[in-house]
Write a protein that binds this DNA or RNA. Structure first.
Lengths: 344, 344
DNA sequence: TATTAACACGAAACCGTTTTCGTAGACCGT
DNA sequence: ACGGTCTACGAAAACGGTTTCGTGTTAATA
């Protein structure tokens, strides 16, 4: 076993001072040719690499960014994560992930763990419980300490910070509009409970599209499912009573489940019922029939979040310009597949 | 903005020494009641939290573990990751993830970035390219430096370290055996190219089951697809020529794709063709028909990997017992669904 | 020859902790 | 009054770097 070598070791071995070694390795003008070469050769030979921790302590910069997401076994979040990781890595940053499990307490604990020097900034999507409780003190603390924060997807107006979201409302609006234009009359909405910010926005788009086309809102056509939905019966009844000819679902899983139920009941897709889901994930692509869905461009979202964060981190060092926060909006796009009739 | 407070600040403010503050906060016997109370009250008031980086430097322990996986938008890997993260977090560790993207160079670079003090140990699954090149010098370096390493799923015999895998061969063997017992004669195997360790093992189990049941191996029944398979044509032809009555696929996606093709060709599932996939992920559950598949128990795997790693990390501190490495084998189990006939 | 500038390097502070060791003062006993 | 023992605290080193500043040596200049 050969443990890591330090500046001190090199200095002792070569009979020079630590400062000289440090400077020689950074090719400082201050050091003579011979000494530099000697030191550099020695360092290469013993594969010297500076200790990240020591450097972090000195510069007060860790080159780590903290990512807190509600769930990791989740297509959208991992897609965003990939965007973050790619960009961050390219800029020399590492990513520390914590999973809040949709729980407020875990979110708080994780943030506190990381906020004590482990990271230079946060990227996060709020947990369901946090949105429900509407308690954002932990975020407030972070920003007050001057730690940069970027919120994505699951955001809140209560906190002043950079954000990146998609135009959920507009995307839902357009999806429903397409269905209306295709002649569908009884368009259902399958959504989660209201406290999830994004679901609310999507519902809003749904309402708007109906309204704009003079269709009355029929609450019998709206199904709210618990987030961890296993409730087959509820959905089955819904189909029997509502008899929709099109369904907009706020996520993939709901869409797939509903398609199964519709198929079981003998409806043809998309002739009798059309389906559109949100989140263009792996399920949409491989479903049978393949599912038309709204692509949230997760990777792009992650990349932009990382970009905004790193820019803020690196600007913080320089000077103290007064804070200005941005909210970037990514345009969702609809991926047409076989669960809808061909739109014009 | 109120920046982080340090021991030095408290010491200056309360007119005591830094050492006194440090000890007082740890409730040391050495410090008098009054002083302790004074210091603790002040610390609470200003929400003092020790700086992780400084502590890491001092103890030479970061309480971070590095996880390197080939892909993050991948059901199995994220499932393992969840297991790792849960256990690690419970033990006070944070997780730094790097994605190798199946590329050798990225794997090496990521390891080197993290190995310089950022983490106390690694958990990883080898990238495809690494397995192909059979070059494990980066792993060797790590272990020689005394950094604990746990390999999972995609492992190699070349490196002496802890490992956790599933009994791929046996699982494939049992799956094929079930198919044989159900009367299937022409059992196909759809796999990746050989260099992926796990695929090779699964193929081996397939061979063994055939052999044991006196069925000759028909290479016309074996289809090897490139890892990022988009090659519909290849698979279509395969079905026409091979005319299998059962198919074992080494992953979910292959299975779903093959099911689609079979359905398109008018086969009934499972009456005409049965399908079994590996990786019991979200696709298996929501496919149509639902897919019988081999559950690799990713979360359990991650938990065990984290357990082994942390144990090694914390034992390393204590004494220098001679190294002993374990390979834990997790039993895969088959989840029966609708793509296979009912097994007895 | 004396002055000075350039060169090449070392000492030391610093980042924020922890921890060992030393010691001033109070108190005890004789 | 003196030696000894606690008690309660501070000084300083250490972790592994970076960086500022000082300085001895040499060579160039007046």
């Amino acid at each position: 076993m050969k443990p890591k070598i330090t500046l001190k070791h090199i200095a002792r071995e070569l009979d020079v001072s630590i400062s000289t070694v440090s400077k020689a390795l950074k090719n400082s003008e201050e050091i003579g040719r011979d000494t530099k070469e000697k030191v550099q050769a020695f360092a290469k030979l013993y594969n010297y690499k500076p200790n990240n921790i020591a450097i972090s302590l000195k510069n007060k910069r860790t080159k780590n960014i903290g990512v807190i997401i509600p769930d990791i076994v989740h297509h959208f979040f991992t897609t965003v994560f990939r965007g973050i990781e790619k960009y961050a890595n390219a800029q020399g940053y590492n990513v520390i992930v914590c999973v809040s499990d949709e729980a407020f307490d875990k979110e708080v604990i994780n943030m506190e763990m990381l906020a004590n020097g482990s990271i230079d900034g946060f990227i996060m999507a709020l947990s369901g419980e946090t949105q429900q409780k509407n308690d954002f003190n932990h975020l407030k603390e972070i920003t007050e300490q001057g730690i940069p924060l970027v919120l994505f997807d699951r955001v809140t107006d209560e906190i002043q910070c950079d954000k990146v979201i998609i135009n959920d409302m507009e995307a839902a609006f357009l999806a429903v509009k397409k269905l209306i234009e295709a002649g569908r009359k009884r368009i259902a909405l399958v959504t989660t409970e209201d406290f999830l910010n994004v679901s609310a926005k999507r519902a809003e788009g749904y309402y708007m599209a109906l309204k704009e086309n003079g269709i009355a809102i029929d609450h019998g056509l709206i199904l709210k499912l618990p987030y961890q939905m296993q409730d087959e019966i509820m959905s089955e009844k819904f189909f029997d009573f509502a008899k929709p000819d099109a369904v907009l679902c706020v996520n993939e899983i709901f869409a797939i489940k509903c398609m199964r139920i519709a198929q079981k009941k003998g409806y043809r897709i998309p002739e009798d019922i059309a389906f559109i889901g949100f989140t263009d994930g792996i399920l949409s692509k491989y479903a049978n029939p393949t599912l038309t869905s709204v692509d949230q461009h997760g990777e792009e979202m992650g990349k932009i979040a990382a970009q905004m964060l790193i820019e803020k981190i690196e600007r913080d060092d320089d000077q103290e310009v007064e804070e200005v926060f941005e909210t970037k909006i990514i345009s969702a796009t609809m991926v047409e597949r076989d669960s809808t009739p061909k739109f014009s």
